[in-house]
Design a protein around this nucleic acid. Structure first.
Lengths: 158, 158
DNA sequence: TTGACATAGGTTATACTATAACACTATATA
DNA sequence: TATATAGTGTTATAGTATAACCTATGTCAA
């Protein structure tokens, strides 16, 4: 089974399991998974496309009074710090992490046609980058890999 | 000799050679390397730190009347389209390309201490990413790899 | 040489993204 | 239940990028 996220799947279950996983993870780590943080994570998981902070904010505004940029950004910061979402740097947008339990670097395939993204999570690539950086006398801390192109589905229907 | 850019070097010559190379490249390709574009490239090469568009703009404003955001962004677009500079996505900033002659993907080491960056340009990593993406049914077009951490010099003097 | 076209740059306005700072509330726990 | 800490509300502002329209300049064919 592919874990790439471009394939068809039961999305309602997909959202639920992401939120449940976050719930469990927060419980384990003693983190406060507040209604706002939970809601923001749900909104991000509505689709496999990266969501902008202000798109999120628009939604939050329609649901609660007085939502303002910090409302969104603080929740996003919490979710990022705890590995529940990733930031796609090249899009200034956020996407749910598909395996928040295992620490890993940010690796994404981004389809420029349907705008869906898939998390790559290739430990071999991660290691190779790490090795190369270290070999150059650099102490690597965080990697961001973003590959744009065309996903399977979009290539077929072209 | 390392090509990583963190080491000491004759920087005046470094700028000059970058601009000369750009000159030659534009001549070869029939591109118009206008005074504005040349100046923006020079400003970017003033240091090996990524430069923000508005830092650049401040400098341009002090040199020419009526410089406005589009003044900077258009020159930056030209330089990027032609591989003379790269955009560091995680910093919203721009840095000179160290080998604009050879097509390659964006690979950077970014020191969070001194804020200098070095271009990695590792074809093996590039290939591995390409292979992995293709294997997942994705047609890769552009790769962006950004590694943050601590450079050699900063690690020593800590 | 001149006119037509395309490219580059000037100018104004605005959209989009993110954070600072301070007040208030909720929660955890001693 | 007092206290400390974390979370959120609220207002303001900083930082990044593009749209749209206009003028100037370079290019090239007739």
């Amino acid at each position: 089974m592919s874990t790439l996220g471009f394939e068809r799947h039961n999305h309602a279950r997909c959202i639920r399991s992401a939120v449940d996983a976050a719930d469990a993870l927060c419980a384990t780590r003693g983190l406060r998974f507040t209604p706002l943080r939970r809601r923001v994570l749900e909104l991000i998981w509505q689709c496999h496309r990266p969501v902008g902070a202000y798109d999120l904010l628009d939604q939050l505004k329609s649901e609660r009074d007085g939502a303002a940029p910090p409302t969104a950004y603080r929740a996003l910061d919490f979710l990022m710090e705890n590995g529940l979402i990733h930031r796609i740097e090249s899009l200034n947008a956020f996407v749910g992490c598909t395996h928040p339990d295992a620490p890993h670097q940010s690796q994404f395939l981004i389809c420029t046609s349907c705008h869906r993204v898939a998390e790559l999570s290739d430990p071999a690539i991660e290691r190779q980058i790490d090795t190369k950086a270290s070999g150059a006398g650099f102490q690597p801390e965080r990697q961001t890999l973003e590959v744009t192109g065309t996903c399977d589905a979009c290539a077929v229907t072209r």
